[in-house]
Each structure stands twice: as C-alpha cells, then as structure tokens.
Nucleic acid binder design. Structure first.
Lengths: 130, 130
DNA sequence: TAACTGTATTAAGATATATAATACAGTTAG
DNA sequence: CTAACTGTATTATATATCTTAATACAGTTA
C-alpha cells in the first residue's frame, strides 16, 4: 500500500504522508474509506506506531483525513484550499527544474516530460475526478 | 555573492553549494577563477569555517572546484553530469508534476513555470554559455 | 467484558547540522 | 627566511530532528 525507502533522506513520516496523500488525491482511496489503524500500519511497515501517529495527525491537520477515537481514521478528501501544499509542490518543482537546467537539460525536454507524466496518469488513475 | 536563508530547512552548507554551483554553471564565475578563501567566506557570511570547508570539499568531489593547499580554491567548470543525479531530479520532478496535475493545475501553467525558472536564472547569469 | 480504535506523554537513542578550537602543511609576498 | 595567507584534518560540543520505546487513558464495538 505504502512503499518506504530507507535510503531516501526524507523522513519516514513524510514518506507515509506522501503515500496516503497520493492515494487520496488520485482517488484510489475514496472519501470516508477507512485507513489501516495506527498500530496495524506500523506493524505492516515494521516501524514504530508513533511515526504513523505523526503522519496521520499531520494529514488530519492538513484536511486529508479525519479521525474518530475508537473507530479509526478515514479519508476526508482533497482539501479545497491547500495553498500551502501547492506552494510546497511549486517549490520542489522549481528546485528540480533549476538544477535540471543547470545540467544542460533542455527546456523543451522538461516540458515534454510534463506531458508524459500527464499521459501516464490518465492510464492508471481511472478513479481520478475529471 | 551568496545569499543565506536561515528560515529555510536546507542546511547552510547546501545553500553555499547551491550558490556557487549556480555561479559556476551560469558562467558568472569563470574557469580557474579563484573563490574566496574558506576563512574569508566564513567571515563574510558570519558562519563557521568548517561549514564552508564542507561545502568546498563536496563541490570539489562533484567536479565543480579544484583546490590547491596554500593557494586557494578555483573553479573547475561544469562537470560531466551524473546520470544518477539526473534520475533523482527527474523523479522529484515527476512527483511534483503528478500531484500538481491532480490538484487541477494546468499543464500549460506548469510549462510556463519552467520558462519562468529559466528566465529567472538567466536574469542573474548574463554570462551563461549558449 | 475484551479487543479493538485514536491520542497523549515521557524517555532514550541515533543522526545530521553547526560551532569551536586547534593543528599541520603548502604558497607567497615582503 | 619570515609572516601571513592558503587548504586540510581532527576532536569535541551543542542543538535539533527523527525514531523508537513504553506506557497510559479514553472512546467504540462485537
């Protein structure tokens, strides 16, 4: 369900957040669908429950999840105005583009890549809204 | 010469690396041009010499600089790019683009952004080759 | 009631970043 | 040659973040 990469410098709780955010945004997980429990997810990934707890808490604060004590955590959907997330994405995007341009990767090649990603998405994400 | 942002999560030595890499790739600094000494740079930025030392060492390992004990550190040029680094950058790029597309950001807007980043780079580096 | 849920807290260890204080060797201007 | 600059290396310390660990407590449900 979620893939961890320990060689990545990105913290585990961030990777977990990214994983679920992806599943939610793509519509792979539907609204009100239940997520694995904190302990179950931790056991499944062989990591500490606190790490999952943090990921879930932050995703809830961002509006992607809602949690009910005793019942579980559920998909809330894609937040209407996640301008903060959008800023993060553009920042990551800009950084990648800038260094690619440093490395003599052409502007055309980069734009073509955008289209490729778009096509690849259309192939897999059938449930994605419009 | 180099601008530091302490609010950024990015480590100082990384910001220093990025700064000089930019100056080198854009041609603002020419091949064999001398960089400020480790101590001078540290004093100029009001940070510890060891931090500059690390930035210079890694830039040398990456092929952007060469250093001569007693003389100083000098621009080596733009190294033959690492395909590994390029892969990493494209992976980060794809992830950002994918989520932006799911957040209803248009393909056109994204491509325009590439051009904006490019222009922003050219604005600062008039001597950039080609 | 028992077995699940989320949530909160405190402690400890590991790692990365940055500073601090030296020390040593090569280069160069005077 | 000497002094003042270079790069380089090392050890120690402080700090912050990440992660694990071990609980504890409260709500839900079969």
């Amino acid at each position: 369900m979620i893939q961890l990469n320990y060689r990545d410098a990105k913290p585990i709780y961030e990777q977990v957040k990214d994983g679920f955010r992806r599943l939610i945004v793509q519509g792979v997980m539907e609204v009100d669908e239940k997520l694995p429990s904190v302990r179950e997810m931790a056991s499944s990934l062989a990591i500490n429950p606190n790490t999952i707890q943090r990921a879930y808490r932050e995703l809830e604060q961002e509006g992607y999840l809602y949690a009910v004590a005793g019942r579980g955590s559920f998909v809330a959907g894609v937040p209407e105005e996640d301008s903060a997330r959008r800023k993060e994405l553009f920042a990551a995007f800009d950084a990648a583009v800038e260094e690619l341009l440093y490395l003599r990767v052409g502007e055309e090649e980069i734009c073509q890549r955008v289209a490729q990603v778009h096509q690849k998405m259309m192939g897999k994400g059938e449930k994605a809204k419009e």
